[in-house]
Nucleic acid binder design. Structure first.
Lengths: 135, 135
DNA sequence: TGCTGTGTATGCATAAACTCATACAATATG
DNA sequence: CATATTGTATGAGTTTATGCATACACAGCA
C-alpha cells in the first residue's frame, strides 16, 4: 500500500502563486480522497515534510492546522498526526467536477501555448505511465 | 451564447487562501477551455470585474497580466481585453517542451485534487471533441 | 532518569498580496 | 473638440506568507 514515505515523496510545491501551505493542504486532502491515506493512518511528521520540501516548520504547521480545523486529522503532541475521518463525504461527483475544471484550464493553456490537444494527451499519458514504472 | 455578462456572473472569489488574482486567472482560463470564451471575444472589463467582485482594479489587472503573458488574451488600451487567437503550432521542439511542462503541472494538480490520470485524460479528450462539433 | 521524537510557540525579518486613492494615456463617440 | 471608456501606472499602508532561529511541553522508550 502507501507508506508515509510514498506520501512524502509525492508531495511537492510549485511557484504558481498559490501559498505553500495551501498546496500542502490540498495535496494531503487529495491523498485522502484518493484513498492513499485512510482514517487512523499516521501522517508524515511536520518536520519530515519541512525537511523533505525544504520549507519552514511553521508553514507545514499552517497546513496541518487547517486540516485539523476541518476535522481531517488529529494532532497529538508528542505522538504525531493521524488521519481522522474522510474530510468530505467525498461526493462521487467531486472528482468529476475537479477533473473537468482542470481539463478546461489545461486545454486553454495548451491552446495559448500552441500545443495541440493530441500532443498534450500523449505527454500526460507518457508521464503517468513513467511514474507507474517506479513501483 | 455566452455574453460578457454571463461570464461576469459566473466569476466568484472564495476565502480559501488562494490569492484572488490566481482564482480569477484560473476561472477565466476555464471559461476559455470550455468554449464560453472564444478567440476574438471581448472579455469583461477590468473595472467590471473589480466592481462585480468588490476587489481592487490592480488585483484584476494582475490576473489579466498573467493571461496576457501566457498568450491567452490581448490587452488593448482604450478598447478592452480580447481573447487571443491561438498561435500556429510552433516548432515541434518548442511545442514538445511546452507540452511536457504543461503535462507535469497538470498531473501534479490532478494528484493534488485526487483525480486519476484516466479521468483527466477522458475529460480533456471529451472537451476537445466537443469543440470540434461547434464548427 | 535521561534521551529522542513530535507538536506548540515566539520573535524578527523580508517579501508578496491586497486595498485605497489618484492619476495618466489611448481609443471611441457625439 | 469634449467626454466617456478602458487599460496603465504609482505610492502609501495593512495584512499575510515565509524563512530562520530558538525554545517549551508532552509522549515513548532504554
Amino acid at each position: 500500500m502507501h507508506t508515509q514515505q510514498q506520501i512524502l515523496a509525492a508531495l511537492h510545491v510549485e511557484a504558481t502563486g498559490v501559498p505553500i501551505y495551501v498546496q500542502l493542504r490540498e495535496q494531503l486532502l487529495g491523498a485522502m480522497g484518493a484513498g492513499f491515506l485512510t482514517p487512523g493512518d499516521q501522517m508524515p511528521t511536520m518536520r519530515q515534510v519541512a525537511v523533505a520540501l525544504k520549507v519552514d516548520l511553521n508553514t507545514v504547521r499552517h497546513a496541518y492546522d487547517d486540516l485539523e480545523k476541518m476535522g481531517a486529522v488529529r494532532l497529538e503532541r508528542g505522538r504525531g498526526t493521524f488521519v481522522a475521518e474522510p474530510p468530505e463525504p467525498a461526493h462521487p461527483d467531486a472528482q468529476a467536477v475537479a477533473a473537468d475544471k482542470l481539463a478546461r484550464q489545461t486545454l486553454a493553456q495548451a491552446k495559448a501555448a500552441g500545443v495541440t490537444t493530441q500532443l498534450l494527451l500523449e505527454r500526460i499519458a507518457a508521464l503517468a505511465a513513467k511514474k507507474e514504472d517506479l513501483r
